[in-house]
Design a binder for these strands. Structure first.
Lengths: 144, 144
DNA sequence: TGATAATGTAACATTTAAAATTACATTAAA
DNA sequence: TTTAATGTAATTTTAAATGTTACATTATCA
């Protein structure tokens, strides 16, 4: 398996949509910002839409927008919306090995608890906070 | 980047070494159990050795053994020993995008805090505990 | 209402990092 | 001194993420 950068890309997308608040952003515009293909964006935004974080409008002048207030939209929500099956990858089971066969059962609860333990940290950071932090960085850069 | 199953494999290895406690296990024996190549095992065990979790003996009749008591050896230690650079992958930076350029700075502390939040959960599970749980499963299977 | 410009998604191609393999130097037992 | 193990570099293979093409659907607007 390969690790995707979906979570970080999704944060980027939400930040972008918040910065451009009020105007719909097309997958082409987002793709330029993230430096990827519009289809990749539409696939990723599809998951954010399914989770109710982003809204989409089809047709000319269509595009995407945040469907939650940036104060309420936090990183845990984004994580859940785009997370892959498992945080920790399991190797393929070796049917000839007792340990391998039972490994999933042995680690499942702990892995799940470990993942859930990130909830508090990620919940504590909103898109609004990141936007403000970004503004701060921009101001700093301007005053150099 | 691709997500490796190193963490789960490393747990498997430590469990195996504990189950076979007292006798050195060769990379070939471990490779058969994990269903992979001996070189893959030696590379992975190399990290566990660097972290002081496993000892190795070269030469004929050589092999690997746990160098900590299974009660003390916990999953957080194993995680730290074999962890990749980052838990959450970042896409390549787009120099033409303000958000992309600052994203690393924006998320770094939060990502680090999220990873650290798993410490308590993973620290709470030892190889000894997993071995006992495995014994329990084995007994259940035998009494079916 | 027809042309257009957007999303939604399936199917396929490409890329890239993990995993596997090969090779060989080093080590220590018998 | 032969042999069987580790240690590790270099290379090949593989598979999953990423990128692309294609096209149906949707909705705007002239």
């Amino acid at each position: 398996m390969r690790a995707s950068s979906n979570f970080t890309k999704a944060i980027h997308i939400c930040l972008f949509l918040n910065v451009k608040e009020g105007e719909l952003q097309s997958s082409a515009q987002l793709a330029e910002s993230v430096d990827t293909n519009p289809v990749v964006i539409r696939r990723l935004v599809g998951r954010l839409r399914n989770a109710g974080l982003v809204g989409s409008v089809a047709g000319p002048q269509g595009g995407f927008h945040l469907s939650q207030s940036p104060e309420d939209l936090n990183l845990w929500e984004i994580y859940l919306a785009v997370r892959e099956d498992e945080l920790f990858v399991r190797p393929k089971v070796n049917p000839d090995c007792d340990i391998s066969c039972n490994l999933e059962l042995l680690v499942h609860d702990t892995f799940q608890a470990a993942e859930m333990s990130m909830k508090t940290e990620l919940e504590g950071v909103s898109i609004q906070q990141l936007s403000e932090k970004l503004d701060g960085i921009r101001t700093q850069m301007a005053n150099l």
